[in-house]
Design a binder for these strands. Structure first.
Lengths: 355, 355
DNA sequence: CTGAAAGCGCTAACAT
DNA sequence: ATGTTAGCGCTTTCAG
């Protein structure tokens, strides 16, 4: 066959020479089979006008017969838009981020875009690696839940036109659109709630201090205590890893120390879960308010400060697509409110006030 | 400037003519700035050998100065592999699928691939639309948690070389690699557990009958009852939507009917959650075993048949990449075991046997 | 209404 | 060690 002929002598590439994409037919193949020009196939595939019904039918038949499917990689290269966005989050397995991601996906879908997810595992390097890999794939936009606190590495990308929105935590050292929950206000409200129920010695167990929300929630905790004129003992505050062992030790220290707390604010869902386990074993009941709602928390009667993870994702995605649609203007910061849901653990009075 | 000159007269495209990808520099631009050939830039970017340290440095400088990042779309077009895989699941917000997806992501990452997620919302059409969109993007492989029961639409894709693995539920009308949990065995064990604790009238509330796992779990339920020589009243079995209202009605009917059940097998995590809520309000305690583990289920003392969602995802992804690495052979079906975790609700004896 | 030609940005194959 | 050329499969442009 023509296999050995120099390619410059044959206009078309012989079918047997196909290798890529596991032998997939191309528009050229469809055109040849339908006896039409390449562009006509393109028109049919993309539903563009200017094709007679008869021609269209012949092309459709060839498409069916060959099992053709448009190669979007090539399309993307030509068009310059991938109709996909990237989402860098901490851990897709975390019940907080699942709904957030799903909400982003729904907005993307409404805009005809696909979503590429990546988990940073709270590792700044991995966040950067992921975000840049997504940029190399030329996602149209990027939504980032930061693990690190320096996002200058994204500057060239943003300048090059990658719309970028930060969620849940603010960007570090760059100015960018951001959507946050009101961590400060939520924590303050939670602690005020405990104070209103008679507590004076209240502890706070939070995430690592390099995480923005952890610091904000601590601020909220301190603000509520200060507002009530209450002192805060050093032993009542513990920031660090949310690994169960660490949290367990922190909680145990607070309830078992010389100045034992009678109530606790748990800094996020993982902390809450462990705190509930530990407190189930204490003799005196300890009041608890957790940041982030949990499945089944109602059945367990856990009082929480709920964030709306889906709203966070939706808001961020909508802002992203508005930018992609050409919205100009300064980066904006949106803060979504939290909601205190009393369910029992937060309304337990301190021992002294008990009936 | 040369802007108006016909492009055939100028070797390079003037910088002002760039439009795509928001004005991004290309390798050509980098080459020009570094005063080297295009291929040399490619070598540096890809870490290929055969570049003097000095040349490399000059190229790196040009890359930095221009903020160049390789366009993977073009690379993909040329190489024929996208280094990405697709995962079509039901709902990323479901606590069962989050960990599954995360496990797939980890395996993908180990193979240098990105993961594109899509939620079918249990809609067969949407599943197909998503799967085919992923194929059009030329994902190297596809992992599908089926919503529909006819996957012949994937035949051309599979023939064209898209490695495909089904998880959690089997493929419909095509033969393909599949990874499942042992729904039948798990349900049978769960019901046997209840029978061993003295129950005779046991109900089953499951998902819609078009969902494979629902049917399998029902089979397991019936097998255990039959093994014990127990009859099954029609009123004790209810398949359908897992929406809270539907489940609530089904459970209420079973515990309040003329032949009230003393124990219940909940067909999946959503059913379990609602069942727990309903049963919390009944006068007589009703025993419960739930399919799928839940966060905090230990604190609530809910006995469950646990599936390992992460193992499901990991196993499927590993099979996928083995296929991508060239593994041949017939499609294989793997069934992962389930594990019964007694925590209380499944060990409650029926009223007659109570102390 | 239809098609030929150019080229998106990159890599493979082949010079030099 | 470095550069040149062709072409991945599609869309854009422009000519019939």
């Amino acid at each position: 066959m023509a296999d050995t002929a120099p390619s410059s002598l044959v206009s078309g590439r012989p079918a047997s020479a196909r290798r890529r994409y596991g032998n997939r037919p191309t528009m050229k193949d469809v055109a040849a089979r339908a006896g039409v020009g390449l562009k006509t196939v393109s028109r049919v595939v993309n539903g563009e006008p200017g094709v007679t019904p008869d021609t269209e039918r012949r092309v459709q038949e060839a498409i069916e017969a060959l099992g053709f499917r448009r190669n979007d990689s090539a399309r993307v290269l030509r068009k310059g838009r991938t109709a996909s966005i990237g989402l860098v989050l901490e851990d897709l397995a975390d019940p907080f981020y699942g709904p957030l991601s799903r909400a982003v996906e729904e907005v993307a879908r409404a805009h005809g875009a696909l979503l590429i997810n990546g988990s940073s595992a709270e590792d700044p390097e991995r966040e950067q690696e992921l975000a840049l890999a997504l940029c190399a794939r030329r996602v149209d936009g990027l939504i980032v839940i930061p693990a690190g606190d320096d996002h200058r590495y994204l500057e060239p990308e943003i300048r090059a036109g990658v719309a970028t929105v930060f969620v849940d935590r603010p960007a570090g050292r760059i100015d960018a659109d951001t959507v946050l929950s009101d961590s400060f206000g939520g924590a303050r409200d939670g602690v005020a709630h405990l104070i209103a129920h008679g507590h004076r010695r209240i502890g706070f167990v939070g995430d690592q201090p390099r995480i923005h929300t952890a610091v904000e929630r601590l601020r909220g905790y301190r603000a509520a205590m200060a507002d009530a004129g209450l002192p805060v003992a050093d032993a009542w505050v513990s920031l660090g890893s949310t690994a169960p062992e660490r949290v367990r030790a922190a909680v145990a220290g607070m309830v078992g120390g010389p100045e034992p707390v009678t109530a606790l604010l748990a800094g996020n869902n993982r902390v809450t879960v462990t705190a509930v386990r530990v407190l189930a074993e204490t003799r005196e009941p300890v009041a608890l308010v957790g940041f982030d709602d949990l499945d089944l928390a109602d059945l367990l009667g856990i009082t929480v400060i709920a964030q709306d993870a889906a709203a966070l994702g939706r808001t961020a995605a909508e802002r992203l697509f508005r930018r992609l649609d050409g919205a100009a203007g300064e980066p904006r910061r949106v803060t979504l409110p939290t909601r205190l849901i009393p369910r029992g653990t937060g309304e337990t009075p301190p021992p002294g006030l008990r009936k």
